[in-house]
Simulated scan of single mutants.
Amino acid sequence: MKMSNKVYNILKYALMMFIPAVITLIGTLGKIYNFDTETIILTISAIATFVGAITGISNVNYNKNNK
């Protein structure tokens, strides 16, 4: 699977900066307001892991074709 450089950069930024910040925000607000955040945090983490794997596969394919 190949993706454009723009899409790759957006996904990379989201996976490295945005998603961890959102998970931290949800977890912190859950503690403050005393509600269970486990399900939503696990869901976001699973999706981020899947997207990270797809992004990694795209990166490997890109590097393989540019050698």
Rank of each mutant, 00 (worst) to 15 (best):
N66I: 14
V51C: 06
T39P: 01
S4N: 13
T37P: 06
K67T: 12
S4L: 09
K12S: 08
L42P: 01
G56N: 04
G30C: 01
I54S: 11
I19C: 00
P20I: 10
I41E: 07
T28E: 08
Y62Q: 07
K2S: 14
K6D: 07
K67S: 13
A14F: 14
V7H: 08
I54C: 10
I54L: 13
V60C: 07
A53C: 04
L11M: 04
I40N: 02
L15A: 01
N59L: 13
P20L: 04
P20K: 07
A48E: 02
L11R: 01
V7C: 05
Y13K: 06
K6E: 10
Y33P: 02
T39R: 11
F18V: 15
K67N: 15
K31A: 09
M17C: 12
S4Y: 09
A46D: 09
S4M: 10
M16V: 10
N66L: 11
T24D: 12
M16P: 00
G27M: 06
L42F: 06
F50R: 08
A14I: 14
N9M: 11
N9P: 02
A53Y: 05
G30F: 00
I32M: 11
S58K: 03
G56T: 06
M1S: 12
Y8F: 14
A21L: 08
I41W: 02
T55V: 15
F50D: 02
L25I: 12
M3Q: 05
L42H: 08
G27T: 10
P20E: 06
V60Y: 09
N66S: 11
T55I: 15
L42M: 08
T24G: 12
V51Q: 03
I19Q: 01
K31F: 11
G56Y: 02
G56C: 01
A46E: 08
N61R: 15
V60H: 04
I10H: 12
L11F: 03
G30V: 02
N63K: 13
V7E: 06
A48S: 06
N66G: 03
K12V: 02
T39K: 13
I54V: 15
A21K: 09
N59P: 00
D36C: 03
Y13W: 03
V7W: 05
N59I: 05
Y13T: 07
Y13I: 04
S58Q: 02
L42I: 06
G56S: 05
A14H: 13
V7D: 11
G27Q: 09
K6C: 05
T37N: 05
A48G: 01
G56F: 07
S58C: 09
Y62H: 09
L42N: 12
N65L: 13
I44A: 03
N65G: 12
N34M: 05
K31M: 10
L42T: 11
L15P: 00
M17S: 14
K2L: 12
I40W: 01
M3N: 03
Y13P: 00
T39C: 03
M1F: 10
N5V: 15
T28F: 10
A21Q: 07
M16F: 07
K64D: 07
L42E: 13
I40P: 00
S4G: 13
Y13S: 04
S58N: 08
M17F: 11
Y33E: 04
N61T: 15
I57S: 11
N9G: 07
I41S: 03
K67P: 10
